[in-house]
């Protein structure tokens, strides 16, 4: 934890400017709700629809908050992408999973009643089959995540 903090501070003072992405793989957070024992279909947590809004050139609070969450999700998934079982167990016991759950819970829509919800991390590549990296336990739909 201290090493990560020091690394983040060092990157702030001495950036590498090598933030590079060829978008060959994407991480996606899916959610589904559980009500009276019935599970809904998995759906992406974030909208897959493009936006017609040009206003965001001036003010993009929601978009930037979403971007921060996606960056957090990418960071959390880095350690479990190689299917290391120890890394998955560590991920499950980490407080970061509570934060992931908090993100997912905050974005649950209220169109359908839900007692519980579940989320999963999926790695997708254009033209290739998706890979499920992690599936959470059933979590309460209401309440604090931390």
């Amino acid at each position: 934890m201290i090493a990560t903090t020091l690394s983040n501070i060092l990157k702030l003072f001495l950036p590498s400017w090598n933030f590079f992405n060829d978008f060959s793989t994407f991480l996606r957070l899916d959610v589904r709700t559980i009500h009276d024992g019935c599970e809904s279909e998995w759906r992406p947590l974030y909208s897959t629809a493009p936006t017609p809004s040009i206003r965001r050139i001036f003010f993009n609070a929601d978009g930037n908050a979403e971007l921060l969450e996606k960056t957090f999700i990418d960071r959390m998934a880095e350690n479990i992408a190689d299917e290391d079982q120890k890394a998955v167990k560590r991920f499950e016991s980490d407080t970061n999973i509570l934060m992931l759950a908090g993100i997912a819970r905050s974005r649950l829509t209220t169109t359908q009643p839900a007692d519980q919800f579940q989320f999963r991390l999926v790695m997708a590549s254009p033209g290739e089959a998706e890979e499920v990296l992690f599936v959470s336990a059933h979590l309460p739909a209401q309440g604090e995540s931390q």
Binding site: P50, K70, A124
Partner: peptide, 11 residues
């Protein structure tokens, strides 16, 4: 083609 990284402008 994807909204996974950024929410893309529709056009």
């Amino acid at each position: 083609r994807s909204n996974a990284a950024y929410t893309v402008f529709a056009p």
